[in-house]
Design a protein around this nucleic acid. Structure first.
Lengths: 200, 200
DNA sequence: TGTACATCAGTGAACGCGCGTTCACTGATGTAC
DNA sequence: TGTACATCAGTGAACGCGCGTTCACTGATGTAC
């Protein structure tokens, strides 16, 4: 990566974007504010990303890369289906919590260019890591398991947990119930999911 | 409800907002465009909702009301836990698909005022309908079931399915797998969830 | 029933603002000879 | 090694635009007497 005046402006812009979105939500984002935070003129981002969509797509791709790396690492060398489900679930939730700006953009589908090859590559890699775990569930617990349906189920459940996380504490407060820590929820989710998929 | 010049402008504005967001996403929303679509001057919305947040909060509250009504109706008179899970799951997905604009606002938590009493009332009502089904699962299938964790699990899974739905066809295309219809997915999800919660 | 008045939904012009984009430019980095 | 040139990251002024908000207003609806 060439280092010119700034050092690595594209990375700095992604970082500033992630911060900004984590603070204000996707609706509070603007190119000018990002440039301000990165300490460059507001015309600079165009040199690297063209427009807003280009910058956000790059951010989403970075998020998927981090996610795929974490999921692959979590799955590596774990031979028990339940334990592997727990680990990739926990890694997903951890990455999502550590990168709220990235995830906000990844989840909302009207902000990014879905055809971007880098974004596709890493998102498919993350999905494949999940599929691998489903194959393990099938081999160990239920030969009739439909891999695609099961993958979708787990993906939806964990992603749903991540989206709901900010609301859970509010609901707990409003309905007067106790608040279960996210880590424990992930483990329970993994148990429910694997047991559910194991049932014939 | 009083009928003045327009008839029922608040409802017309909510409707226009839902349409606009369903088409362009939350980021494509503006008060002026909504007023344009409703056929009134751009200053009119302020008379009813104050500002953007007020309008979107009202839209979210309407969405939760529709959702709670549908879930309560779906649950009514169904005594089998699995069947009830299937029905409220299907009703959730149906309402979400029929009201994409409402759901986009309900899900994204930086757009609405979370303290709004109407919004709270209906969202709690929807959650309570889900909890009732969890109690049925506990009574029929597993006396040790933790109601709150189980409710969160089902809520997250179904909501995750709804958020992912637009992406599922893309992924199916990219990975060369077949695309399972959403209705079938809901039934499979219900089976996984109930079996998972039934396991001890 | 009729009249006078109060209320309030909706108008339309005006405002200042932050936005994305454009473009001629500056000056540092990298390269050819 | 030294010089001349090409490349390109980042600047900063200028632009037109759609936005939300304000405010004096119009005119229809509802009410008091």
């Amino acid at each position: 990566m060439a280092k010119y005046h700034h050092g690595d402006l594209p990375a700095a812009l992604r970082s500033a974007t992630a911060e900004l979105i984590a603070e204000n939500g996707p609706s509070g984002f603007s190119l000018r504010e990002v440039a301000r935070r990165a300490g460059v003129s507001h015309a600079a981002p165009a040199h690297h990303f063209g427009d807003t969509e280009g910058l956000l797509t790059s951010l989403a791709a970075e998020g998927y890369q981090t996610l795929a790396d974490a999921m692959e690492e979590a799955a590596e060398g774990v031979d028990d289906a339940m334990e592997r489900m727990r680990r990739i679930g926990a890694s997903y939730v951890r990455v999502a919590r550590e990168n709220p700006g990235h995830f906000a953009v990844m989840i909302q589908n009207d902000l990014v260019c879905g055809d971007d090859p880098t974004l596709l590559e890493h998102s498919i890699r993350a999905y494949t890591a999940l599929q691998g775990t489903m194959e393990m569930v099938r081999d160990q617990l239920n030969p009739d398991l439909d891999i695609d349906t099961a993958s979708t189920f787990c993906w939806a459940s964990i992603q749903g947990l991540v989206s709901l996380a900010p609301k859970l504490s509010d609901v707990a407060e409003d309905t007067g119930t106790k608040r279960t820590p996210l880590d424990e929820l992930v483990d329970e989710f993994a148990r429910y999911m694997v047991e559910g998929m194991a049932a014939r």
